[in-house]
Design a binder for these strands. Structure first.
Lengths: 357, 357
DNA sequence: TCTATATGTGAAACGGGTTTCATTATGGCT
DNA sequence: AGCCATAATGAAACCCGTTTCACATATAGA
């Protein structure tokens, strides 16, 4: 059962395909009577224009590639859903490109991930996407392999590319990112306002831009308050719940322990919560914890997480809007910053014994 | 900067486009020397074949449409990641079609959702996808609007359609689903084995197939054990954390309260956990809770959830494999069942005072 | 009445590949 | 030497829309 084409319609309507195309796209006036005849036939046969053929001539597909590192990490569905919302309104459809790559022990293989990104980049170009948005992976690297960056720049010459929540230093690639440093300052300042002086920070990967920026926010907030940062209270290399639990357990079992922990994401904070629970330390009475990202799960825990909202949905929305403009050839700012917001819930409280509020 | 085409390559290599196509696809022997000349040019110009043009003639795109109700619900990323894993290996790329539709109060609008599904169905056909997989939405309806079903059947005539985790009664549409009844039996039987006799069940939507099936599993397990099911201990219409909290709070504040709650998904279970905590009831000592789905978050809670794993990743993988076969025109079973597994963690314990084990 | 402009339409080229069919060159075998 | 299978290649058609260009007709303004 061959699908019906404009030719079929044209033949039966006794017109040329050009006319059919015209009613299809409203691109030139068609006599009312002719139009009706054609429309009727289209309905009769449930005609559906072949998007491939259309895109081939139009040189636009309405398709976008969305490259992310791991859909299973609840942060990404959040930004994706914001992106989806806006992209749909703008008439785009998108390929989801997950670059996660794990070995048997379910550990992340970074090199494979970058390789996947490259494969997807090239695949998406073949598919003639109108634009590409990329989050995580190489985009997060503070010192990216020049080769990886070069490739991205090469792609960006041919099709609009938008980087989310990262920063490739020294490149001219468009970005929309949360202000990570500001977000960290927000979190740490909150802790300081509550009277905490012994603040630890856990998680992140030292090679990632966002980690470095958050760390820098942490340091600057501490410095402004005249507080010392203790090197042994900065535990990095990890972003998962188990890692958070591990880090926090280490912190909490030491002779001297912090009264507050700033976690590089909510997953870590949830892990920290578990560690505190295991250690019999009450949150927030004896230990304040603040997370980062404000994923939905932040409200699932007991107590609910105080955290920094990166406005993940908003990042996604902004991404869609910006990419659309880039595709349309409009000018957009090279860099757009989204301001995080502090969400105070139940895991933070004034330092016990004091009453700063 | 017009992208280079086979014509450009052909001209410079002094061959016809047919020959270029042949080296591109290895579809007929080409003299070694000629081949090398062409390959060299391809590299020189970083030639990337236009997938649209290719698909137009080949009548296959390597594209799949994946329709789901809400990527923000952690169950779906699990399924999706399994699907992604396998689909990528098989050389497919897929459009993510999220049909969620909410009003200002962030409430789900079902009718709009079905409408979205229809839009996507038609859009995907225009895009010439090789196949469609669909999960949630109308697929979950026990008594679907005949019109919705008819549409699906119409689509399935033109392109392979695979339904996940649902059942449209009386249709000949291919499906792969977890055995929901069996899963529920597993959960309830576990509770019964622990000595519980007063078992409540919360969540789900009474109009959904999976809810009905799980309920039927619950009932059959209760009946086999000679236990009565109390109508006021079956609270439905909801799948979220707040709903779980609400349902559980109601249950726990009654004069007579259950000693165990079977939740229709993990989100509800997390909500129940919160309600118990608020009510000062210890889990699992005073109340056992079992969830359903085994989303990653099931291990984030304190205590960790005992739950029924639907093998979500496995469902996704199976979907990809099956759809691939359907696309290839191979025969596949109309219905494939995936067996859930019970995952015992920390929210269930023997009924206090007894020691059944 | 005669341009000027808008309306209505078709033929043909185009987009960038693949595939069929025909043709020539080549090698192996009797 | 003669024949056949295979290698190697090109011309042209095809996939299914869109777009350009040309042309005919109609309407309006001068």
């Amino acid at each position: 059962m061959r699908p019906v084409t404009v030719y079929d319609i044209a033949r039966e309507a006794n017109v040329s395909v050009a006319t059919v195309s015209r009613v299809l796209n409203n691109t030139a006036p068609v006599k009312k009577e002719t139009r009706e005849r054609i429309v009727a036939l289209m309905h009769k046969y449930q005609f559906q224009p072949n998007a491939l053929a259309r895109s081939l001539t139009r040189k636009e597909t309405g398709m976008i590639g969305f490259i992310l590192p791991d859909i299973t990490n609840p942060f990404f569905p959040e930004v994706l859903s914001g992106f989806d919302y806006e992209a749909r309104k703008l008439g785009y459809t998108y390929f989801l490109c997950d670059t996660i790559s794990t070995n048997e022990e379910n550990e992340r293989l970074y090199d494979r991930q970058y390789e996947r990104e490259s494969q997807y980049l090239s695949l998406l170009m073949e598919k003639q996407v109108d634009g590409i948005v990329m989050i995580g992976g190489r985009v997060d690297l503070a010192k990216p392999d020049p080769e990886l960056t070069r490739e991205l720049e090469e792609v960006a010459k041919r099709v609009p590319v938008l980087l989310l929540n990262g920063s490739l230093p020294k490149t001219k690639l468009n970005r929309v990112s949360a202000d990570q440093k500001f977000g960290a300052e927000l979190a740490v300042q909150h802790l300081i306002d509550l009277g905490h002086r012994d603040i630890a920070v856990i998680g992140g990967y030292s090679k990632m831009t966002n980690t470095q920026q958050r760390l820098s926010g942490f340091r600057s907030a501490m410095k402004d308050a005249g507080l010392a940062v203790r090197k042994e209270w900065i535990l990095t290399e990890g972003f998962s719940v188990p890692k958070g639990q591990e880090f926090a357990a280490k912190l909490l079992s030491a002779k001297r322990r912090p009264t507050a922990i700033f976690c590089m994401n909510d997953l870590l904070a949830i892990g920290a919560l578990k560690a505190a629970h295991r250690a019999g330390i009450r949150v927030p009475e004896e230990l304040s914890i603040v997370g980062y990202d404000d994923i939905p799960q932040a409200t699932y825990s007991i107590p609910e997480l105080t955290t920094v909202s990166l406005m993940s949905q908003e990042i996604g929305r902004q991404a869609a809007r910006t990419l659309d403009k880039m595709i349309a050839g409009k000018k957009v700012p090279l860099f757009q910053s989204i301001m995080p917001e502090l969400v105070v819930r139940e895991t933070t409280a004034p330092l016990s014994g004091t009453n700063f509020q």
